[in-house]
Amino acid sequence: MTLVPNSNLVDERGAPENPDVAKALVMAELVRIVEEGAAVIATLESGTIELRLATGEVFHLGDKVVTRIA
């Protein structure tokens, strides 16, 4: 699966300097992937947000980090 930006919020100079803007862009892309049916996001009993891609990869989404589980 290839992530393709569908927004022009980031210009050719690179990623946004504000971490909140960068996080919002990443979350918007994840929502798009879920809406297309290529992933599922769930909150585990521990409160951890888990992203499961249709290709089998599993990620835990933290406030400032994304951890690949499988």
Score class of each variant (00 low, 15 high):
38 A>T: 09
4 V>F: 03
38 A>G: 04
24 A>K: 13
64 K>G: 15
18 N>Q: 06
5 P>G: 12
62 G>D: 04
45 E>I: 05
28 A>G: 03
57 E>F: 06
70 A>S: 15
26 V>F: 06
8 N>Q: 08
31 V>A: 03
6 N>E: 14
40 V>T: 05
12 E>G: 15
14 G>F: 09
1 M>T: 08
20 D>K: 10
50 E>S: 15
38 A>D: 10
38 A>E: 09
47 G>H: 08
56 G>M: 01
55 T>E: 10
66 V>I: 06
14 G>L: 06
15 A>E: 05
56 G>Y: 02
45 E>D: 08
42 A>Y: 10
41 I>W: 14
6 N>C: 10
29 E>W: 05
37 G>K: 05
21 V>K: 06
58 V>Q: 12
39 A>L: 04
22 A>T: 15
48 T>K: 09
70 A>H: 09
58 V>E: 06
26 V>I: 13
18 N>A: 15
5 P>C: 12
45 E>S: 02
65 V>M: 09
46 S>W: 07
63 D>T: 14
12 E>S: 12
51 L>A: 03
52 R>H: 09
20 D>M: 03
35 E>S: 11
12 E>I: 15
55 T>R: 08
26 V>P: 07
23 K>V: 01
56 G>H: 03
48 T>C: 01
40 V>G: 10
41 I>G: 15
53 L>T: 07
22 A>W: 11
61 L>E: 04
1 M>H: 09
11 D>P: 14
62 G>F: 01
34 V>M: 09
6 N>T: 06
10 V>P: 00
28 A>Y: 03
70 A>R: 11
49 I>D: 11
37 G>M: 03
30 L>N: 03
52 R>W: 07
54 A>K: 11
31 V>F: 05
47 G>E: 10
56 G>T: 08
28 A>E: 06
7 S>G: 12
20 D>S: 13
2 T>W: 04
1 M>C: 04
43 T>H: 10
4 V>D: 11
16 P>A: 00
23 K>S: 09
9 L>G: 12
57 E>L: 04
14 G>C: 13
42 A>R: 13
61 L>C: 00
17 E>N: 05
13 R>F: 14
69 I>E: 01
51 L>Q: 06
10 V>H: 03
31 V>Q: 02
2 T>L: 05
24 A>V: 04
64 K>Y: 10
18 N>V: 13
31 V>L: 09
61 L>A: 02
26 V>N: 00
61 L>I: 02
66 V>C: 00
68 R>A: 07
9 L>A: 08
55 T>C: 04
34 V>D: 12
35 E>D: 09
11 D>M: 06
9 L>W: 01
30 L>D: 01
50 E>R: 10
42 A>W: 04
28 A>K: 06
30 L>Q: 00
31 V>I: 07
5 P>I: 15
37 G>D: 11
58 V>N: 07
55 T>P: 11
36 E>T: 14
47 G>N: 03
57 E>Y: 00
